[in-house]
């Protein structure tokens, strides 16, 4: 996993509540056995019309959203199915930071494991950012080391993140390798169960 310390990029707004992972990546694209190549299917049913052409009304198809790497979303983003294909698709499309007032639990974890930075901010701050981005101030900067995020040249907001996950992201660590170093403790736990 690539370490992520700071990120600067253009933000796009997805102003919908309860966006579920069935929307982020519909089931017909879950049959692949690779981790890559999901970006072209991101938000498929919203992004494309039934004849396969781009839907010009969809937020991410607007010219101002082109090349966006920061997604501003609403409450309960990523709810529903546990499919990790959702963060794979977001990452493959180019999103590295997602900012929302709340995330579904499994989705949040799945982001962290794939090097996407999920940022929880109070609703009022997210909506303020959305307004500014829609008004044309689209450059957002996130600093994971300092745990702040905001528009370039604008106010910075602090965000909270579990220290463990933050370290993982900052260092791009392989979590499995780290856990395997605790083999002795895992084996000791197993011995206690057998005896107990």
């Amino acid at each position: 996993m690539e370490p992520i310390r700071t990120h600067r990029g253009r933000a796009a707004v997805l102003n919908r509540i309860n966006v579920d992972t069935d929307q982020i990546i519909p089931k017909q694209f879950l049959k692949r056995i690779e981790r890559t190549g999901f970006g072209e299917f991101l938000f498929y049913d919203w992004r494309y019309r039934s004849d396969g052409s781009l839907n010009p009304d969809f937020e991410l198809n607007k010219p101002e959203a082109e090349g966006a790497s920061v997604l501003l979303a609403d409450h309960n983003f990523g709810c529903g199915s546990s499919r990790e294909h959702a963060p794979w698709a977001l990452l493959d499309y180019g999103f590295q930071v997602i900012i929302a007032p709340s995330f579904a639990d499994i989705f949040y974890n799945n982001c962290v494991k794939n090097g996407i930075l999920p940022i929880r901010l109070p609703e009022i701050q997210v909506y303020a950012l959305m307004e500014q981005v829609m008004a044309g101030h689209t450059e957002v900067e996130a600093d994971l080391a300092a745990q702040t995020v905001g528009l370039v040249g604008g106010e910075r907001f602090s965000f909270a993140m579990d220290a463990h996950w933050r370290n993982m992201l900052l260092n791009g660590w392989d979590e499995i390798a780290l856990t395997m170093q605790l083999e002795e403790q895992i084996a000791a736990y197993e011995r206690r169960q057998v005896i107990g």
Binding site: S82, E84, I106, E175, T179, M180, I186
Partner: peptide, 22 residues
């Protein structure tokens, strides 16, 4: 509880999982 694919891999390899207590 449900987990993502990275966590599936983690459990396969270690039979354990890092979880913040809900």
């Amino acid at each position: 509880f449900g987990i993502g694919t990275s966590e599936v891999e983690h459990v396969l390899a270690t039979q354990a999982l890092w979880q913040a207590k809900p």
